[in-house]
């Protein structure tokens, strides 16, 4: 669910700092270095403990995905599979009903939403950042204010609305709800404000229209912000569960997340398939994260959205 979002942040701190520039006494230097060496050891020990704490469940899930169902929860437990079963992954595709279709649905909605958000979030963001039009500031304030309304308030009315529009159980339901996202409009607005105006002014003198300026001059400069918006939208849509649960009724319209949940609610003991399915469900988003980490981090730091 992507409910939480945040207001514009300004974490910049302009501190009037008195900097003391006293030279360090020489004789102390030896002990500080020894303390630092000890500190480094303690630090690394702590890092490793935390890494184990946060990462072990993933490692064990990957290892479990190669075990038989019985071995996943065997007592006494095993670390490595006694026999490796890579065919578990093949079985996910054949034994979980309609799995290939769910993979397609996940990718289709994810890519469609990314494309729509790249266009609309930047278009609206550009208008807020650069163009003068009536009620601009009011509308911008409204956008920020409505971002903090908890999503659950909207669930019933939106469901009834989409039901009456005959969009329930179609891709249309999710595309209507996510064709733009205020959090990423905000991200784009902030980025556009940081681009110098010179290029646009030259284009205005040349008689270029506003859409031309947006499309040909501004967008190519906005690559970092577009990547952040695209990657975070990808993550949000790929990981989506709640909206699919509400709006999709036929198994042919499920995504991987909903399909996996439905499968596990029927076959609670098929640990091999549940584990392999989970690995498959996390793989695309993991790849996107590894490739686009920089933008991921920047986007989260500026919007507080995931």
């Amino acid at each position: 669910m992507s409910i939480g979002s945040s207001q514009a942040l300004d974490t910049k701190i302009n501190a009037p700092v008195a900097i003391a520039t006293m030279p360090e006494p020489r004789q102390v230097k030896d002990t500080t270095e020894r303390i630092n060496a000890l500190e480094v050891v303690v630090r690394y020990a702590l890092y490793i403990v935390i890494t184990l704490f946060l990462f072990t469940p993933f490692v064990m899930t990957v290892l479990s995905s190669f075990k038989t169902s019985a071995e996943v929860i065997a007592f006494p437990p095993t670390l490595l599979p006694s026999v490796w079963h890579p065919e578990n992954y093949l079985n996910v595709l054949t034994q979980i009903n309609g799995f290939p279709r769910m993979v397609f649905n996940s990718f289709f909605i994810t890519f469609a939403a990314v494309a729509l958000n790249l266009f609309f979030d930047s278009l609206v963001g550009y208008a807020f950042a650069r163009l003068e039009f009536p009620y601009k500031n009011t509308l911008f304030a409204i956008m920020i204010a409505t971002m903090v309304i908890p999503g659950f308030v909207f669930i019933v009315p939106r469901y009834i609305l989409l039901l009456n529009a005959h969009l329930v159980n179609t891709y249309g339901a999710l595309l209507v709800l996510y064709f733009l996202q205020p959090g990423y409009i905000l991200l784009m607005t902030q980025f556009f404000k940081s681009i110098p105006r010179d290029l646009e002014e030259a284009a205005i003198v040349d008689g270029m229209g506003w859409f031309g300026i947006f499309w040909k001059i501004i967008l190519p400069l906005a690559r970092p912000a577009l990547l952040a918006t695209g990657i975070l939208t990808f993550a949000g849509m790929w990981n989506g569960f709640f909206d699919w649960l509400i709006y999709m009724q036929d198994a042919t319209m499920f995504n991987i997340q909903l399909g996996l949940t439905t499968f596990r609610s029927v076959y609670q003991n098929q640990w091999d398939l549940i584990m392999a399915g989970s690995v498959l469900a996390i793989l695309p988003i993991l790849l996107v994260y590894l490739v686009g980490q920089r933008y991921f981090v920047r986007g989260i730091a500026t919007t507080g959205m995931k």
Binding site: L54, P57, N239, M275, L286
Partner: peptide, 16 residues
């Protein structure tokens, strides 16, 4: 990493 996994995957992992 725990934050990039979906709520479904996290739930599956913790069921285990």
């Amino acid at each position: 990493t725990p934050s990039i996994a979906s709520s479904v995957v996290i739930s599956m992992i913790f069921l285990y």
